[in-house]
Write a protein that binds this DNA or RNA. Structure first.
Length: 219
DNA sequence: ACCCAGGGTCATA
DNA sequence: TATGACCATGGG
């Protein structure tokens, strides 16, 4: 059993997800911060507010007061913390020269830059790298840990980087074309989130799970 | 009324 | 390095 075979099962069962939900790369970046430990339905409301206020740009977010920004993103929760984080990110984004310049950074350089922003941790940075910048990074989240621990493919207590490299080294050894690898990382993470939310939670019956033939925990 | 959600930072030991 | 406290809204 491999990471690739699990991916194939999920893809066959659910089909492509075409993530990330967002109209522009910048919207994806903002959504990545807003969705930290928060349901996506709440993030959507915050993004609608930002759009209605015509404030979904790095310039506007960096310039407005933290209090005003906090009110706009309030439905996303932790609004005081996230207002500051969004401003930290937008200041950095503008300081680097914006999207045009950042697109020329290599993968490592861009990842380190994102991680240097206070409020952007490994998962948020990888969401941005994969879904806004189309870079080949595998996103690890709580769902990924749970599912693959259950499948017996990981120990479960590895650090973030360790786990990410496990997925990346194995998948990149099987998929040679960069664009194809990016596409698989993109769909894979989306499928993991979908599977965890829509199936494991609502319908925790192994006999109905599309991964049952690969899962030691299934009857 | 309770539980959790597509994390991250900071203060302690 | 490794825990714990803290942040906060909205849906099930």
């Amino acid at each position: 059993m491999t990471f690739l075979s699990v991916y194939k099962s999920l893809f066959k069962h659910y089909g492509p997800q075409y993530w990330w939900p967002g109209e522009t790369p910048f919207e994806v970046m903002i959504g990545a911060v807003l969705t930290q430990n928060t349901a996506w339905s709440n993030v959507e409301k915050a993004i609608v507010n930002l759009k209605q206020a015509k404030s979904l740009t790095a310039e506007k977010i960096a310039a407005m007061s933290a209090a005003d920004l906090g009110q706009l993103i309030r439905p996303a929760g932790y609004f005081n913390v996230k207002a500051k984080r969004l401003q930290n990110f937008c200041s950095w984004f503008l300081g680097q020269g914006g999207e045009k310049v950042l697109n020329n950074f290599d993968d490592i350089e861009l990842r380190n830059g994102l991680l240097s922003v206070n409020g952007v941790g490994p998962e948020t940075a990888d969401d941005m790298l994969l879904y806004a910048f189309n870079r080949p990074v595998f996103v690890i989240d709580a769902y990924t840990r749970r599912i693959f621990l259950r499948l017996g493919l990981v120990a479960g207590d590895e650090g973030y980087e360790n786990l990410r490299h496990q997925f990346e080294s194995q998948l990149s050894s099987e998929i040679k074309l960069r664009d194809e690898l990016v596409n698989i990382y993109n769909e894979y993470h989306a499928l993991i989130v979908l599977h965890a939310k829509e199936v494991c939670r609502k319908q925790p019956r192994c006999s109905e799970c599309c991964l049952r033939s690969q899962c030691p925990a299934a009857e």
